[in-house]
Design a protein around this nucleic acid. Sequence first.
DNA 1: ACATTTGTTAACCATTTGGTTAAACCATAC
DNA 2: GTATGGTTTAACCAAATGGTTAACAAATGT
Lengths: 200, 200
Amino acid sequence: MKDINTEQAILNAAITIFQKKGMAGARMQEIADEAHINKAMLHYYFRNKQQLFEAVLMSAFQKLAPQMNIIFASEIDVFEKIRKFTAGYIDFMLENPYLPLFIIHELKHNPDFVKKIMLHPNKPDPKPLIIQFEKEIKAGRIKDIPPKQIVLNLFSLTIFPFVGDTLFKIVLDIEDKDYHKMIQERKTLIAEQLISSISA
Amino acid sequence: MKDINTEQAILNAAITIFQKKGMAGARMQEIADEAHINKAMLHYYFRNKQQLFEAVLMSAFQKLAPQMNIIFASEIDVFEKIRKFTAGYIDFMLENPYLPLFIIHELKHNPDFVKKIMLHPNKPDPKPLIIQFEKEIKAGRIKDIPPKQIVLNLFSLTIFPFVGDTLFKIVLDIEDKDYHKMIQERKTLIAEQLISSISA
DNA sequence: ACATTTGTTAACCATTTGGTTAAACCATAC
DNA sequence: GTATGGTTTAACCAAATGGTTAACAAATGT
């Protein structure tokens, strides 16, 4: 049984191609070529394009979630948690630059898939962080802002520069190299920005 | 000559379909149906799919830019400008919810088109705002943070909640209706957050 | 050793899709 | 009125694409 190798090779190739071209833009033949196997194998292991795609999207989502939860669930000070998250997540995205836009785009175009994810056990869960915010608000250490809004801000500041990089490079009239420097700078900058925006 | 009407009808239909399905996912027949015309007309007016798509993407981009520039170029106080931008832009996106993700996604998948836009006169231009930031920093009224980073934050906080709405609804475990409320709340919230994060 | 299951391949198929064409339509100019 | 030009339509076409099949190879169990 060498099926385990082949199946993984298909999945890896599919991840690469789907992330780059999206569900609609990807071609089965292209995925087969990327995996150096016969196209029929794709159907042998994953039945059809839709199911292969869903396996890829699910695996992409699975990759996101743990990365978040490790930090969200750790037992550290709120501010320190924010710092850990921004720095850690930026590093993670530097290694997986296609991931966030891929997930966001395909999630929006596959509403049925959203339901499947909702039922899945391994979701990103910011609840521990939200509870910490609530405590800090009660203690008067941070401003009375809806905690979910703070999380939304945290996500936006961290993730959007990767999702919208092409647009930003145009609007800010900036080269790839300089943009990369800005991203590096953000690893510490946005945590401090966010903290000072919520500190009481 | 009723060609002007037909051409516009095609463009409108194409905008609708391309925004919903993307370049790769859209079908010429679907666009023709949406416009209630014969498919051959698409080719009569726009030659082929690529050119029709580029016309759509350009028009979408043209829609974004003025909306930004009006606010960026106006002669008002920096903080007031931030408030105007967030509120105004959120309203704009509530009316065009597909626009930002469409532009970002297609820009990333059509690198050649990026060059075309760079040459185009009507680009979003945050330079007036950046100059204001620089002045305020020199005057010691706001912290010494790279102005482009502030603009990046402003964009992220404003636009990302629309781009990533599907993901957020999953992560924050929130219904459409409540998410809409959060967005409304953000119209004033994020301006104040951003301002307090940069105030000296 | 041999039968059976599992994995792999090349050739093939039906449908979809972007694009074309030739004829028809229709407004306007003469 | 009818010739002329742009506009619209239905039918058509070739290529691409997702998916299938039947034969072949390689393990696996007995």
